[in-house]
Simulated scan of single mutants.
Amino acid sequence: MPKQISLFIAIILLMSGRAAIAQSKIDSLLPIRGFCIAAPQPKQLDTFIKFINEELAPRKVNTLILRVDWNYRFETHPELRDSIALSKQEVKKLVRACQKNNIRVIPQINLLGHQSWAKTTHNLLRVYPEFDETPHIKMPEKYVWPNADGLYCKSYCPLHPDVHKIVFALVDEICDVFEADAFHAGMDEVFYIGDDKCPRCGGRDKAELFAGEVNKIRNHLALKNRKLWIWGDRLIDGKTTGIGMWEGSFNNTHRAIDLIEKDVMICDWHYERPDQTAVYFATKGLNVITCPWRNPKNAVLQTQDMVRFRKSVTPVMKERFQGMMQTVWSGAGQFLDEFYGVKVNPDAGENTQSACFKAMFDEIKKMEDGK
Results as ranks from 00 to 15, higher is better:
107 P>W: 08
111 L>V: 09
155 S>D: 00
115 Q>H: 03
158 P>F: 12
115 Q>E: 01
136 H>E: 13
165 K>Y: 09
161 P>Q: 00
155 S>P: 00
108 Q>G: 04
98 C>V: 08
87 S>R: 09
104 R>D: 03
118 A>K: 15
146 P>D: 02
173 E>I: 10
172 D>G: 11
182 A>C: 06
104 R>C: 10
112 L>D: 02
181 D>L: 07
145 W>I: 00
163 V>H: 11
93 K>H: 08
86 L>T: 00
86 L>H: 01
124 L>A: 08
131 F>S: 03
170 L>E: 02
151 L>K: 04
119 K>A: 14
135 P>Y: 14
162 D>Q: 14
167 V>T: 11
160 H>I: 12
106 I>K: 01
107 P>T: 05
119 K>N: 15
136 H>S: 10
114 H>A: 05
95 V>D: 01
107 P>Q: 05
140 P>V: 15
117 W>I: 13
152 Y>W: 15
144 V>C: 09
181 D>Q: 11
123 N>R: 14
158 P>L: 11
90 E>N: 05
126 R>E: 08
133 E>L: 07
116 S>A: 13
145 W>K: 00
169 A>M: 03
86 L>C: 03
178 F>M: 09
176 D>V: 09
154 K>F: 15
178 F>C: 08
110 N>S: 13
103 I>Y: 06
144 V>K: 13
95 V>N: 06
98 C>A: 14
99 Q>I: 10
149 D>Y: 07
147 N>A: 03
141 E>C: 01
156 Y>Q: 04
105 V>H: 05
174 I>E: 00
153 C>G: 00
132 D>W: 12
105 V>K: 05
116 S>Y: 09
92 K>N: 08
174 I>T: 06
112 L>W: 08
126 R>L: 14
175 C>M: 06
94 L>N: 03
182 A>H: 00
151 L>A: 04
93 K>I: 05
138 K>R: 15
163 V>C: 11
151 L>H: 07
164 H>V: 06
175 C>F: 03
177 V>F: 06
118 A>D: 07
91 V>I: 15
134 T>D: 04
168 F>P: 04
91 V>W: 08
98 C>W: 11
105 V>L: 15
181 D>Y: 06
171 V>C: 03
129 P>L: 14
119 K>D: 10
156 Y>M: 14
113 G>W: 07
105 V>C: 11
158 P>A: 10
110 N>G: 04
120 T>A: 05
160 H>M: 11
130 E>H: 09
179 E>T: 02
107 P>G: 05
85 A>T: 06
182 A>E: 01
155 S>K: 07
90 E>D: 03
148 A>R: 13
121 T>G: 04
151 L>M: 08
139 M>H: 07
137 I>M: 11
153 C>W: 12
171 V>S: 01
159 L>Q: 12
139 M>Y: 06
145 W>C: 01
159 L>H: 12
108 Q>F: 12
169 A>C: 05
89 Q>G: 04
99 Q>F: 05
115 Q>K: 01
94 L>I: 10
90 E>S: 03
138 K>N: 07
180 A>M: 13
